[in-house]
């Protein structure tokens, strides 16, 4: 069944006779035209990467960062309408802050994804709003060791808090992707935006579910995938933006940070080289 002309696609929160919400589907269209965004869950961290299309020569290079920090240990990259992405991030920051108010500690990545899923879903329920024109990828590192609660001043008894099982694994890298419908899944590798199909097939080749890929390798793969997914012929130039979150013992000490320039440039050089090699093979 087609959507146009039926009248069922003119308002949010209206079902068509075959049970679809067309406004949400149209919002997805807005996402599909955005620059490619990907996230990779590696064994010791998470990488977020974005193909930032350069819409004008007059833009200041290397400024206009689009991957946002939500809490110290968490980042969001999104594809679609830029202002909607900022709205999403702003709400995510509020959720993370209110979690801290309540629990005196950082929000787990899964809880943030859950709350943002609910928030985005609420924008499909009412005719007075429109759905989000973004698909957002949330990456985070939940602390693997017991961290002090916010405001803690002493060490207290050294037995630690109770209710813990010996040998149980806590925390680690997490990755979620939230769609305009409010639907979200956990991922090993997530991709959205224009080049998502190519990016997805590249991500699948990495066998991420095995949990073997290291963070440093992940950075290089992320850069390569963004370059592969970029369509030279159709698209404008782009800047590669990358952030990462490692374990507490890793390079970012559990914090969400920009990938250092040297490492990013190295990854880009490798990405370009691998593209050239592929072309030679053809």
């Amino acid at each position: 069944m087609t959507s146009i002309g039926t009248g069922y696609d003119l308002s949010n929160s209206v079902f068509s006779p075959d049970g679809r919400n067309f406004q949400v589907e149209y919002a997805v269209k807005a996402v599909e035209s955005g620059g490619t965004a990907i996230g990779i869950r590696c064994k010791d961290g998470v990488v977020l990467a974005l193909e930032k299309l350069i819409t004008s020569k007059l833009l200041k290079p290397e400024a206009n960062k689009r991957i946002a920090t939500v809490d110290r240990n968490m980042g969001v990259v999104s594809s679609g309408l830029l202002p909607d992405g900022r709205h999403f991030v702003s709400r995510a920051r509020d959720e993370a802050a209110s979690w801290r108010q309540m629990y005196k500690g950082p929000i787990p990545t899964s809880a943030l994804a859950n709350r943002m899923g609910s928030y985005v879903q609420a924008y499909t329920l009412y005719s007075s709003v429109r759905p989000f024109g973004v698909t957002a990828i949330v990456g985070g590192w939940d602390a693997e060791v017991e961290v002090p609660v916010d405001g803690q001043v002493g060490s207290g008894p050294n037995t630690g808090s109770g209710g813990k099982k010996d040998g149980a694994k806590h925390g680690g890298p997490f990755l979620y992707m939230i769609e305009p419908s409010g639907l979200y899944w956990g991922y090993y590798g997530a991709a959205t935006g224009k080049g998502r199909q190519i990016a997805k097939s590249e991500l699948e080749k990495l066998n991420l579910a095995d949990g073997e890929l290291s963070l440093e390798e992940g950075v290089k793969e992320a850069a390569r995938i963004i370059y592969v997914a970029h369509d030279d012929n159709k698209d404008k130039e782009f800047e590669l933006e990358m952030t990462w979150i490692s374990s507490l013992t890793g390079p970012t000490k559990g914090r969400h940070e920009e990938v250092p320039k040297e490492l990013r440039e190295e990854a880009e050089t490798l990405a370009k080289k691998s593209l050239d090699d592929d072309k030679m093979d053809e």
């Binding site: 949010n12 807005a30 599909e32 429109r130």
Partner: peptide, 17 residues
């Protein structure tokens, strides 16, 4: 154009007129 009456309606192409 039915999709350009308000800013809460996406067009089928995902635009907000």
């Amino acid at each position: 154009n039915n999709y350009d009456n308000d800013s809460v309606t996406f067009s089928p192409q995902g635009r907000i007129f």
